[in-house]
């Protein structure tokens, strides 16, 4: 589906199913960028590790890891580095506003546009185009 090329000049952001099922069934070179979203826990990072390997193996473009829910930068990132090696990282601080937005059934950008997590995620846009150029 992603390769059917009907999207023209639009940017497609595909939120895949949880886990690596869809990623494992996608054909080679279907996307230009794979965002691997993790939190700094061993189980989440194990899934992240497998996602990174699959994305590289199947040539799903550049891989960026988004580390959400970071409480202590030093400790959390040490664990991330241990599990994920030298992957390109974006760090998003742990932020109650994300949970509050979920509970309210609203978008984070409407609920708390200036909260630390939203600001970190918005910066992802610049990174996407930075070295993609």
């Amino acid at each position: 589906m992603l390769s059917s090329g009907e999207f023209g000049t639009s940017i497609v952001v595909a939120d895949l199913e949880a886990g690596i099922g869809t990623l494992s069934r996608l054909g080679d070179s279907q996307v230009d960028l794979t965002l691997v979203v993790v939190e700094p826990t061993p189980r989440s990072l194990d899934v992240g590790r497998r996602a990174i390997d699959l994305a590289r193996e199947n040539k799903q473009g550049r891989v960026i890891v988004v580390v959400n829910k970071v409480v202590d930068v030093e400790t959390d990132l040490a664990l991330v580095r241990e599990k994920l090696g030298d992957a390109e990282l974006v760090v998003v601080p742990d932020d109650d506003a994300v949970l509050d937005a979920d509970r309210a059934g609203t978008a984070l950008l409407d609920h708390a546009p200036d909260c630390p997590a939203a600001r970190a995620l918005v910066e992802l846009v610049d990174l996407v185009f930075d070295s993609a150029a």
Partner: peptide, 15 residues
């Protein structure tokens, strides 16, 4: 440009 977003459930993929 096509971007895939993957990860374990609960990690903040959808947000």
């Amino acid at each position: 440009m096509k971007i895939a977003v993957v990860g374990k459930g609960g990690a903040g993929k959808t947000t």
